[in-house]
């Protein structure tokens, strides 16, 4: 018979570490999907996921069972991704000169007719990835959670451990930062 999550967690806490494996198998897809939003290379994504699970095992005692295990784990995942962003800020200062041809075409199409540039085009996805990589870790996290994942300010405060006013301030700054990057990108291309 399949054991419930609470039973598995209780068994791990009682010293049966093998009971942790079904939890890893069940939630790894979500952990990987989240990590892929913040890191590009597969090796980095695997490192993040590995760190998340080792942290989860170490800190399982602090899981009180008031909220679902998944929420607790996702909070840990987002925080680990944020730590990763803070440790890997190497691409932020690079220029936009390396924009590929399809990205350039998409931008030109947007300039000619903003309403007609398709959002689902691969080039648009590449461009937003490029812009996101140039944001500061705080701005990237806020834009990702607030604008892309459509989470509320309260939710973000809970996930990140920041206060609600701090999330609001960081969201304001993040939008400004993103706009500056877009200005730089379009200036480099069209001026």
């Amino acid at each position: 018979m399949e054991r419930s999550e609470a039973e598995l967690i209780a068994a791990v806490l009682a010293g049966d570490s093998a009971s942790f494996e079904p939890l890893v198998a069940k939630y790894s897809p979500r952990v990987f999907a989240t990590a892929r939003r913040y890191a590009r290379r597969e090796s980095e994504i695997e490192d993040i996921a590995q760190e998340v699970w080792l942290k989860a095992f170490d800190k399982l005692k602090s899981f009180r069972g008031e909220a679902p295990f998944e929420h607790w784990l996702m909070r840990m995942t987002v925080r680990t991704c944020y730590d990763f962003l803070r440790g890997h800020q190497r691409n932020r200062e690079s220029s936009f000169s390396e924009i590929s041809e399809p990205e350039e075409d998409w931008l030109e199409r947007f300039v000619a007719d903003p309403g007609n540039a398709p959002e689902d085009a691969d080039a648009a996805k590449l461009l937003i990835d490029r812009v996101m990589e140039k944001l500061s870790p705080e701005a990237r996290l806020v834009i990702q959670l607030l604008e892309i994942e459509d989470r509320s300010v309260k939710e973000i405060a809970k996930i990140t451990g920041w206060s609600v006013p701090l999330v609001k301030v960081r969201a304001f700054r993040a939008r400004g930062e993103m706009r500056k990057i877009l200005v730089r990108m379009t200036k480099e291309k069209y001026l």
């Binding site: 897809p29 979500r30 990987f32 999907a33 996805k125 604008e147 892309i148």
Partner: peptide, 20 residues
């Protein structure tokens, strides 16, 4: 408008949940 378009593009990206 560009910011909105790109944010929408990011929203449309379904994150890959493959596990090694």
């Amino acid at each position: 408008e560009l910011q909105k378009k790109l944010t929408t593009a990011a929203r449309l990206q379904k994150p890959d949940d493959r596990v090694p």
